[in-house]
Lab assay of single mutants.
Amino acid sequence: LVRYRTISKIPQITLNFVDLKGDPFLASPTSDREIIAPKIKERTHNVTEKVTQVLSLGADVLPEYKLQAPRIHRWTILHYSPFKAVWDWLILLLVIYTAVFTPYSAAFLLKETEEGPPATECGYACQPLAVVDLIVDIMFIVDILINFRTTYVNANEEVVSHPGRIAVHYFKGWFLIDMVAAIPFDLLIFGSGSEELIGLLKTARLLRLVRVARKLDRYSEYGAAVLFLLMCTFALIAHWLACIWYAIGNMEQPHMDSRIGWLHNLGDQIGKPYNSSGLGGPSIKDKYVTALYFTFSSLTSVGFGNVSPNTNSEKIFSICVMLIGSLMYASIFGNVSAIIQRLYSGTARYHTQMLRVREFIRFHQIPNPLRQRLEEYFQHAWSYTNGIDMNAVLKGFPECLQADICLHLNRSLLQHCKPFRGATKGCLRALAMKFKTTHAPPGDTLVHAGDLLTALYFISRGSIEILRGDVVVAILGKNDIFGEPLNLYARPGKSNGDVRALTYCDLHKIHR
């Protein structure tokens, strides 16, 4: 019993810090008490220290592992850092350059016999395009090294910054494609005289377009951006097909006994025919423009016929181009109408809503002055909100995010209106959640004399007048207030005048 009563005193000691020596009952000389009392004092002292730490809000209350900052290894790049964003855009520009100039170089340097010394005699450094290609190869190699040090988000939505895990993730992902696209074939085969082989191998750079397509997928929600990307894709495919079309004609031209190829026909049409040795002929500019003209006309199913396939190889390629053109029509131009419709969806919704308003007016036989006010209010409210119901949009977000959005939407009023000066951010967040926005066209009466005042109004834009009878008592403008002081009276009061809008007004109100 003594032991039980001794232990039962522990909660009292913990909360009230009572010393055991003052209790005459606990001072009985028993061996059990002498053993338990020192333990009680020690526990009391420890609990006292913990309570003191909690009340003082000291940093040592938290466990040590929670006080440590997340460790980022040296030379690790955050995937959302500004440097990584700028670097990704730079790589994107280099990939676009590669997609345009690599097929052009591979096709127009394929057994090209233009006048001038061969590239091997001039030297590697004197070729501007080769120098640019070398810079692109170096940048792609540097990009691989950067990807080995860039964080990523795993399946659990955690940012991984450990170098080993980053390397394994990159090896399992895009490393092989990036490595093949970054191989400097110019340096590996330079001086061997195989410019045709170098041009063909350099087309491996186009593998990076797969990554670019995935990154550009984030802009699919913007109709104008999608339309622009589709047109660029169409032009890029036409450019690639033009390079292939020229390569076919250029390879067949020296081996044909009869002059029936499209390059021969082009030379005869523009007065620059090929001679018996295969030299001469149109310039590279004429060849490229004509090839691009043929691919565009074939892809769009126009086909004027002034550039036509004559050999079997050219006919087979033309059939493939027609098939590609039909697929592009289905996948690209078939979506253009939907994209344009999405661009004008706001206008369509406006006309639909206006039609419903006019049908309501016609069905209920609203008189002319009231009908005009109804239409003007709808037009003004639509121009202010673009038909978007803010309350319906915010309803799907958590309250903390709703408060931040409301604070942002009402920031101008909260910053410049005098009653809100000096208020804490928590108070402003709470008030912003209570605001209701209303609009009024010129001549609209917001409050009639004798109406119950259940709200306090803040003028965000425009001006109003307060009338008693036919006498203008006051004219209020931006950041002015009218209405009933909230919670100042037990019952809502009545208006002693009319409140009429002089201009288009936007008002925020808080109800009782």
Rank of each mutant, 00 (worst) to 15 (best):
E359T: 03
R71A: 13
A430K: 10
M179E: 01
L216C: 09
F294D: 01
M390Y: 07
S308V: 04
F175M: 05
I135W: 03
Y124D: 01
H439V: 13
R208W: 01
I141V: 07
G123Q: 01
Y350P: 01
P273A: 01
V86N: 01
T424M: 03
I237F: 05
Q372A: 04
N368D: 08
G261M: 01
A69Y: 04
V132L: 09
L230C: 09
P309Y: 01
Y97K: 01
M322V: 04
L227H: 01
C122T: 01
L370R: 01
L134R: 07
L343W: 05
M251C: 01
P128W: 09
Y377M: 05
P419K: 02
I91A: 01
H264R: 06
T438G: 04
V212I: 04
I339S: 04
W262F: 01
N386V: 05
S337G: 14
L414K: 01
G422C: 12
A449C: 12
L109Y: 07
Q269K: 01
G280E: 01
D286M: 01
W87D: 04
A432Q: 01
T437E: 05
E115P: 14
L370F: 02
P441Y: 04
K272C: 01
Y222L: 04
T120N: 15
T352N: 09
H264P: 01
I237L: 13
N275D: 04
L206Y: 01
I284K: 03
V289E: 01
R421G: 09
D178L: 01
L374G: 03
G173Y: 05
A430R: 09
L90K: 01
V168E: 05
G123S: 05
F435W: 05
K66C: 03
N368F: 05
I324T: 03
I405S: 02
S161M: 08
L374I: 07
R362G: 03
A69I: 08
I361K: 01
L279G: 14
D217L: 09
L241Q: 01
A423T: 03
G271P: 03
T347C: 04
A381G: 10
Y377I: 01
A130Y: 04
W240C: 01
F175L: 08
E195N: 07
I189R: 14
L78H: 04
L78D: 05
R211P: 01
N154F: 05
D217Y: 06
V160E: 14
W245Q: 01
F363W: 08
H73W: 04
A181N: 01
I284E: 04
D257Y: 01
P398I: 01
A224G: 12
I146Y: 01
S298L: 12
R74M: 05
G346I: 05
L343M: 04
Y124F: 15
Y344G: 10
Q68V: 09
G191K: 13
P103M: 01
S383W: 03
N335V: 03
T98C: 07
G305N: 01
Q68G: 13
F140K: 01
V307I: 15
V136G: 08
G199K: 15
V393L: 08
L343Q: 01
A181G: 14
E115N: 03
I332D: 02
L206I: 05
D137P: 01
W87G: 03
F304H: 04
I284C: 01
K202A: 01
D444S: 10
L230V: 08
A69E: 12
Q379I: 15
F378V: 11
I237A: 04
Q127I: 01
L409G: 02
V136A: 12
R259D: 15
L327H: 01
Y80F: 06
R218W: 05
F420H: 03
F296D: 01
N410S: 09
F190Q: 12
Y288V: 01
F83P: 05
L327R: 02
A330V: 02
Q341D: 09
A119V: 09
P419R: 03
R371A: 12
P419V: 13
S345K: 03
L67P: 05
A225M: 04
I177A: 10
K285T: 14
L78N: 09
W245C: 01
N310R: 01
R356W: 07
P163Y: 05
P103N: 01
L446E: 01
I366K: 01
L227N: 01
Q269M: 04
R371C: 12
I144P: 01
S220F: 14
D268P: 01
D178R: 01
A423F: 04
S298Q: 14
F234D: 03
I324V: 08
G193E: 08
E115H: 05
A182S: 04
Y344M: 13
T203F: 04
T445A: 07
M256P: 11
H408L: 03
L374T: 04
L176C: 13
E115G: 14
A430G: 04
T437R: 09
T352D: 11
V357I: 08
V168C: 11
N156F: 09
K215G: 04
R362I: 03
P103Y: 01
R205I: 01
Y344I: 01
A440R: 07
P273Y: 01
K285E: 11
H264C: 03
T203D: 01
C427Q: 10
A213Y: 08
V160H: 01
F294Q: 01
A338M: 05
H73G: 14
P398G: 03
H73K: 10
V226R: 11
L394K: 02
F294E: 01
E221I: 03
T233R: 04
D178V: 01
L78T: 05
A291M: 01
S283G: 01
G191E: 06
K434A: 08
R371E: 02
G223C: 11
V212R: 03
L428D: 01
L299W: 01
A338K: 08
V336A: 01
P254L: 05
Q253L: 14
Y246R: 01
Q402W: 03
I270K: 01
G193W: 11
G278E: 01
K395N: 05
S331H: 01
V357L: 07
S161D: 14
A291G: 01
L90F: 11
Y170F: 01
V226Q: 13
R208L: 04
L230A: 05
L279S: 13
D137N: 04
L394D: 01
I332G: 07
T438L: 11
V357K: 03
A242S: 01
V160Y: 01
R211T: 01
A107Q: 01
P273E: 01
P442L: 03
Q341Y: 04
A181K: 01
R214F: 01
S161V: 11
F171T: 05
T233Q: 05
L343R: 14
S194E: 14
T120Y: 06
V160R: 01
V210M: 09
G303Y: 01
G199I: 06
H408N: 03
V307T: 04
V226P: 06
I177V: 14
A449W: 01
R362D: 03
V86Q: 01
M433A: 04
I244L: 04
W174K: 05
I77F: 07
L67V: 05
T424L: 02
E114W: 01
I237D: 01
N306Q: 01
L134K: 05
Y104E: 01
A167R: 03
T437A: 11
I340S: 03
V132N: 01
A247W: 11
F363V: 10
I198Q: 03
S276E: 09
G271T: 01
E314K: 01
L176Y: 05
V159Q: 03
A381K: 10
P82K: 04
F108Q: 01
L413H: 01
I91Q: 01
S297Q: 01
S276H: 09
K418E: 12
D268W: 10
L90M: 10
F397D: 01
Y124Q: 03
M256V: 12
S301R: 07
R358E: 03
T203W: 04
L145H: 01
R218Y: 08
E195W: 14
P70Q: 03
L327Q: 02
N154G: 13
Q365Y: 01
G443Q: 03
A204Q: 01
Y344L: 13
I138L: 12
T438M: 13
P163H: 03
F140N: 01
H264D: 02
G261E: 01
N391A: 15
F304V: 04
I146C: 07
G396C: 15
C406S: 08
G278K: 05
I72W: 14
M433K: 09
M256W: 03
R421K: 12
G116A: 13
A224D: 10
F140T: 01
